[in-house]
């Protein structure tokens, strides 16, 4: 794993996930590493508004 590095350019969450998708089989491994919920949320499947409420309350605690 590469250690955290602060580039002046932010690759962006969307562009990063998309690179994994484009990378095919190699990218799938990395995609699986990300919590499935994040992916589901990112592509907008499932009940998003309920998740948002959950996340907000978690952050508040």
């Amino acid at each position: 794993m590469v250690e955290p590095f602060l580039a002046y350019l932010d690759p962006g969450a969307g562009a990063t996930i998309l690179q994994l998708v484009l990378a095919g089989t190699v990218g799938i491994g990395a995609l699986v590493k990300l919590r499935w919920q994040s992916i589901k949320k990112a592509v907008g499947r499932g009940d998003r508004s309920a998740e948002d409420v959950d996340t907000a309350s978690e952050t508040a605690q």
């Binding site: 969450a13 949320k41 996340t55």
Partner: peptide
């Protein structure tokens, strides 16, 4: 994805 990413924790 970017539209959704704005709302990510």
């Amino acid at each position: 994805i970017e539209g959704r990413a704005d709302a990510m924790a």
